[in-house]
Write a protein that binds this DNA or RNA. Structure first.
Lengths: 403, 403
DNA sequence: TTGTATTTGTTGTTCCAAACAACAATAACA
DNA sequence: TGTTATTGTTGTTTGGAACAACAAATACAA
């Protein structure tokens, strides 16, 4: 019972530096999420003293991360409080390689996309090629950013399973990538820190920070696109990652005895039962944008399509029920064509959910559609890139846009 | 974008008191988990300064929570380090009402059960009655504890869904309790603080702290008894509770199209497919202890029983696969007769698990049996009761055993 | 046995971030 | 115009962790 240190608490003692870092991080995170906040609000939200907030904001301003402006609030008694906002010249790059295109965006510290390029490719790019494309796009975008812009880093959202620690894409079936060190490659090329994660997990993060799950502490999200069904989970305010970073692959959970297999070869999973291709087929389409598919679903009346839609709604409902039972979240967020399914017959979906969910967990459950659409992945990827800065505002490096 | 505070960070700014509290809590938690630790180890584990550890330990000793003793380590160069251990006179009571008995235990701060009473009942007790029984047992046990013993509180492990915030048992099918305020009742009777949680969640906590999942940060546990299948999840070192406290009801997740229903009326769930009663029936037993059932399973050779066992193994494997895909845990811990199923044919179980788990999440997955057996629930309940003390060693109240 | 190197505990001092107190600034309102 | 309420600012206080110097206790080599 003695001897070996059994726990892995890893230097979690708190000293003065941690204290300051924690508070700086807290203030910057609040501004990051809320955009503009009065200093007096910061004191009441954090519980810190007026003078402490003054000091913290001054330090953040000195580092060029926030800007103090004249009071904007009107109506209250007493001296008007100064407004604090995130600096507009701090950005992160978001990278999203997909089967038919690679997209790049520049996102500001308050979550606004200020620039965006979509670079179509004929075939699915090799990892090395995708990294080169991304680097070129970033390089050219970097030149066009306003002088004085500073870059926090790069976040990549990949449709596949990602080892978050080292930025290696373990398996991305739609890109045909296996054990691809995309993060290190792109970091090498750009000279910027690169973080990589699963696209659906990042979209979830974006919905939590700016979208329909804003501020929620317990969220399950399902995200469907041409690349199957992805998922993301927020537990107590933080993304669920699991021991090696693969947690949240909600599309691949088996919910039925069906022998239909998904893109990873598992039978009876949510992804095997709720398939974009099956919808396209019944609508006699070879390909369609998300908007076109949405239109077809919402206007479906023929028996064939309706039957397929209903069967997918039923499977989706069961999946949601399982997740709600396991996680007891405040809400479930649906994106991509899943929100079309929801809107087609929300009563049916909610009914299936109710029948598949443990009563207690169902009581306060909300099912919603995502707010951010295709922005979610990019904003989420930028979130990932901003994380270092938000975690340690005093020490995280910033890079010049043009040198 | 301004105005309303959107986030719910709730006074999370850190001040000096928090700092001290955090460090006291950290040290006490380490001792709680590791039993006896050298002071020099505390410095290296926490990263705090030697003199700071000295100060913290002195404060904890002054409050009677820890004891410093002579150096026990031998062999090293240099001055031997003093040993620090948790005080032996601080205990929590664990309460576990079940269908046919109510069990009480006194557990020390280092997780040892020093006293235990099982009080059989003929019928399932009403909440009020169960609270009275528990109070009587606690009162009599309180008198027999050594003079000077101090009590941190009471933790109750209930086989059902518990609203952790207010100690109300929302639904416990085996006890036939609905919306029963068991926590407040017992607190009223005993005059002690009472916390309540689901029994399987607490057993998981115990396995994480002292059992086969000791020190693991990502654990899924499945726990089977006469009351169906319960579950518990540890995410990043902390129990998963969900937004209203009902998370982790893993037995009630639908994994198949079967129409068999579980105790909560849901069809096709893990609990509906892995049933103790089905095993008893095929063994032609009316009732059996866990040990008897374990013996029967491990020695089964007849075609009928083997077939049932195999079918349950297959369902269990699928359930584990779903959970491993969702949570990507380091390990899955099986307790109760699930460990018997595992031991009967571990190859078969692991094979099913492999086929139901996303490859990435399967790579580093361990499946283990629980170490603590029936102790787990009681130790876990005591953990719950100790939580206040561990969270804030300087402020949490302690109560005398005999007055 | 003695001396040296090594590690740990102890004590007094230093340092730093947050709290606090007093005052100035700026609004609403009577 | 004076009063009240709220917020920002400045200088001081405070508490807890780090630090430095020294003492204590061991292993090991000479």
């Amino acid at each position: 019972m003695t001897g070996l240190p059994i726990m892995s608490v890893g230097k979690s003692g708190q000293n003065r530096e941690n204290l300051r870092q924690h508070n700086l991080s807290l203030v910057l995170r609040l501004l990051h999420q809320m955009g503009t906040v009065a200093r007096s609000q910061l004191t009441s939200i954090t519980g810190l003293n007026r003078s402490t907030i003054s000091d913290l904001v001054a330090e953040l301003a000195a580092r060029g991360l926030v800007i103090e402006s004249e009071a904007m609030q009107v109506g209250g008694v007493g001296r008007p409080s100064l407004s604090v906002a995130t600096a507009t010249n701090v950005v992160a790059f978001a990278v999203n390689p997909e089967i038919d295109a690679t997209t790049i965006a520049a996102v500001t510290l308050d979550g606004q996309i200020i620039d965006r390029i979509r670079y179509p490719t004929h075939t699915q790019p090799e990892p090395q090629k995708a990294a080169q494309i991304a680097n070129q796009l970033i390089t050219s975008m970097r030149k066009q950013l306003p002088v004085g812009t500073r870059i926090a880093g790069v976040g990549a959202a990949v449709p596949g399973q990602v080892r978050v620690n080292d930025g290696v894409v373990r398996f991305a079936p739609h890109l045909n990538w296996v054990e691809a060190p995309f993060g290190p490659m792109l970091s090498q090329l750009t000279g910027l820190p690169v973080s990589v994660d699963n696209d659906a997990s990042l979209a979830t993060l974006a919905e939590r920070t700016y979208g329909s799950a804003k501020g929620a502490r317990h969220v399950v999200s399902l995200f469907a696109g041409s690349g199957g069904i992805g998922g993301g989970v927020i537990v107590d305010g933080l993304p669920l990652r699991g021991s090696t970073g693969y947690a949240g692959e909600l599309g691949h959970m088996q919910i039925s005895n069906s022998s239909e297999v998904d893109f990873s070869g598992l039978p009876g999973t949510l992804e095997a039962l709720v398939r974009r291709d099956d919808l396209l087929e019944v609508f006699k389409l070879y390909s369609a944008t998300d908007e076109e598919l949405d239109f077809e679903i919402l206007n479906a009346t023929d028996k064939g399509p309706v039957k397929v839609i209903q069967s997918q709604i039923d499977a989706l409902g069961r999946g949601i029920g399982v997740l709600a039972t396991i996680f007891n979240p405040q809400m479930v967020v649906l994106s991509g064509f899943l929100s079309s399914l929801f809107q087609f017959d929300s009563d049916r979906l909610l009914d299936v959910v109710r029948k598949s969910t443990l009563q207690s967990a169902h009581d306060s459950l909300l099912v919603r559609t995502g707010d951010l659409g295709t922005k979610a992945v990019l904003v989420g990827a930028a979130e990932l890139a901003f994380n270092n800065l938000l975690e340690n505002p005093a020490a995280a490096p910033l890079f010049p846009a043009n040198n």
